[in-house]
Design a binder for these strands. Structure first.
Length: 221
DNA sequence: ATCCCGAGGG
DNA sequence: CCCTCTGGAT
């Protein structure tokens, strides 16, 4: 078992080795882990990811077919009536703010990026509703640019694992980036999120059936 | 630090 | 009833 006392004494090299062992176990456990938002192009993924804030992917996928049919292009969002757009996305929560962001997102894309979703993090985060986490989801899943998507699951798990004690998402991202090669970042993000949803729940983690328990200080308690 | 906001689970 | 769900902007 790995205890918190062990983690406190762990060298950077030992931490890297333990983290990568855990990463391999997750890879074996979730070989099929992938983005669970339904989308057919970068614009759809960007909008779906904006909608996914504080909402399950399953619920986002319930509203996006009608939404994407009604608003096929960035220009359609840019010209959308807020009340009508809200009616499509109401059940995802935060619907007024999300509708406002998505209209601004469409306008930003039309005015500054020729109606196309940009391929860099710096450009993506200039768009309303798109923060670092959303930008990394788009890069990793629409453009095959490696990115760590530090959301609530990701942060909770890596702190429980003792990979970092940081709570600031950007610091968490940089800390985990040190532990894994770049090419693994996107898949690792998916696997952490899948594990968080299936076993390492926020409320009642199922350490008894967790394949990582032997290497996780939070399971030793 | 607080707000935005709806739906489902324990 | 409270907590949580792949956050972001003010």
């Amino acid at each position: 078992m790995t205890t918190w006392a062990d983690v406190a004494d762990e060298t950077p090299l030992a931490l890297t080795r333990r983290a990568r062992k855990m990463g391999r176990i997750l890879a074996d456990e979730y070989p099929e882990a992938h983005c669970e938002l339904d989308f057919a192009n970068p614009l759809q993924l960007t909008v779906a990811t904006v909608l996914s804030a504080q909402c399950t992917d399953k619920r986002v996928n319930m509203v996006t077919p009608a939404l994407f049919a009604r608003y096929p292009t960035a220009k359609d969002y840019a010209e959308a009536d807020p009340t009508e757009l809200e009616s499509y996305i109401r059940s995802t929560g935060f619907y007024r703010a999300k509708a406002r962001n998505i209209i601004g997102l469409g306008q930003g894309l039309v005015e500054r990026f020729g109606g196309q979703v940009p391929h860099t993090l710096d450009e993506l985060v200039t768009l309303p509703g798109v923060g670092r986490k959303t930008a990394n989801v788009v890069l990793g899943n629409a453009f095959d640019v490696p990115g760590l998507t530090v959301d609530t699951h990701f942060g909770r798990l890596v702190r429980r694992f003792g990979w970092t004690a940081e709570t600031d998402p950007v610091k968490v991202e940089f800390a985990v980036a040190e532990l894994f090669p770049r090419r693994d970042w996107t898949a690792l993000s998916h696997r952490l999120i899948w594990h968080g949803r299936r076993i390492c729940h926020a409320r009642k983690p199922e350490c008894g059936i967790c394949p990582l328990a032997r290497l996780c200080p939070s399971a030793a308690a």
